[in-house]
Amino acid sequence: MRYILRKVLFYGVALWAAVTLNFVLPRMMPGNPAEILLARFKGRVNPAAIHAFLIAFGLNVHQTLFQQYLSYLGQLVRGNMGISITYYPEPVSQVLAQALPWTLLLIGAATIISFFLGTLAGIVSAWHRGGWFDSFAPGVFTLTSSFPYFWFALLALYFFAYRAGWFPLGEAYSGTRASFAISNWPDLMYHTALPAFTIVFTSIGGWLLSMRNNMITTMGQDYILMARAKGLPRRRVMYQYAARNAILPNMTGFALSLGFIVSGALLTEIVFSYPGLGYTLLQAVQNEDYPLMQGTLLLIAVAVLFANFVVDLLYVRLDPRVRNE
């Protein structure tokens, strides 16, 4: 319990730091974001609207920095992150809310699949060290992991979607309206499969290799020898004694990659015109859409923290040693 309390406190502070940084950074950049906004909107929107917008986003130039900070926090608590310039007049929160599910679906699924398959392959590879699987899998997947992603994704798109026509050329769904209704899932899967495959294919090697190494180290431990000596079924030794311990060092890496799900595999979303957060971030940067950029970056920071928190909680279940710390 002490451990969990400490974690909650830690992540609370980290969250506050992320939120504050998100406020401070744009104000430290050369040029006032407010001026940039004003310049962009001049003549297109009436001054009163601009003024209201600036206040809404806490960019009121007549306030002290501290007052701005307070109203920024106040707005944030109410879920207000300003208005997107790119998608004007849509609020940033709404743009993000539309993009987030797609990223979670594609990158989330791909990351988790890659972690599980890679870990499993690492376990099997190490357990049957020198066997047929071990003699090709680590090599092959190290190779695929060293492919430049952009190049590989383009090739996959070209051959499997454009030439063979097995997959759509991009987008996340058919038609003009997105729907997460059950009946629409086959269509979603159809659109997700190829980009997800490119991610899994190029990231699985890392999980495989690190799990294999951890397993080999763990299998040299005395408790493995004892488990074998006791005559336990192989599977039990492999999973409950070896893999259970070998996976622990990988949990941190898994937490990080879960956090980065939200930042979206930027390249994936660009190559496959996939309407997720990575794609949104690109739009924001190209259009100097500061509110959207800030909102996206904040969401990424929060997601990284949240994923780490969840994995920390999971870790307590996996490793009894941290419970008594």
């Binding site: 408790y223 006791k230 311990n245 622990l248």
Partner: peptide
């Protein structure tokens, strides 16, 4: 049966002592 040289490291750190004894019995 065996009590190994490094009995200090002969217990699996992530499952309970009882589980490990029961494992031997049930095997």
């Amino acid at each position: 049966s065996l009590v190994s040289q490094s009995a200090m490291n002969s217990l699996n750190p992530v499952i309970s002592v009882g589980d490990q004894i029961v494992d031997a019995i049930l095997a």
